[in-house]
Design a protein around this nucleic acid. Structure first.
Length: 168
DNA sequence: ACCCCGATCGTA
DNA sequence: ACGATCGGGGTT
């Protein structure tokens, strides 16, 4: 399988978030088709972790595209993002849903469940998924129909339809 | 040093 | 509808 390169992620985040649908996420022995994403874009997006500037937690979002941003949420769950756009522009795509095609073949809905199933923790934060041996996104010819909806679990920025769900 | 709360999930 | 659970980040 041919993996997505840095140029894929170094583009407008909404494009990346939509086009990641149908692509294959590979982490170790696990493989799954991405079915749901959300975009978090720049300083003007109040729901973005990086909206108020660079901190120790979000600094990876200010870096080059194609790196994993993994953070702890609610004290017990991890969430996986891929950094997008040019250096110093803080943006990322949250991976929320997966149709697992390795064993066991199950549907995963929710970013916390996704990381728990795959075994992704903050140890994977700052991984370069363009060069990593066993952590990357593979291209796919899948053509995907999707719908755009408000993002989940946030209290501001709900006016933006930046949640993308692949139709079955 | 302290306090509030979150890009969630499972159970009630 | 709500509690679990804890680090980040702002405030004192």
């Amino acid at each position: 399988m041919n993996r997505l390169d840095r140029a894929f992620f170094n583009r407008p985040t909404l494009k990346v978030a939509k086009e990641l649908l149908g692509k294959v996420l590979v982490f170790g022995e696990h493989q799954g088709i991405i079915t749901e994403t959300e975009a978090y874009i720049g300083l003007d997006d109040p729901a973005n972790h990086a909206a108020k500037g660079k901190t120790k937690r979000n600094e990876i979002m200010f870096g080059e595209a194609g790196f994993a941003y993994v953070y702890l949420i609610y004290g017990m769950y991890n969430c996986l993002n891929f950094v997008t756009e040019k250096k110093d522009f803080p943006a990322a795509v949250l991976i929320r849903g997966l149709k697992v095609i390795s064993n066991p073949p199950i549907i995963i809905d929710g970013p916390g469940k996704l990381c728990r199933f795959l075994g992704i923790t903050r140890e994977q934060n700052n991984t370069d998924i363009i060069t990593s041996e066993n952590f990357y996104v593979a291209d796919s010819k899948n053509t995907v129909q999707f719908e755009a909806m408000p993002r989940i679990g946030i209290s501001s920025g709900t006016d933006r339809l930046w949640r993308f769900i692949a139709k079955p």
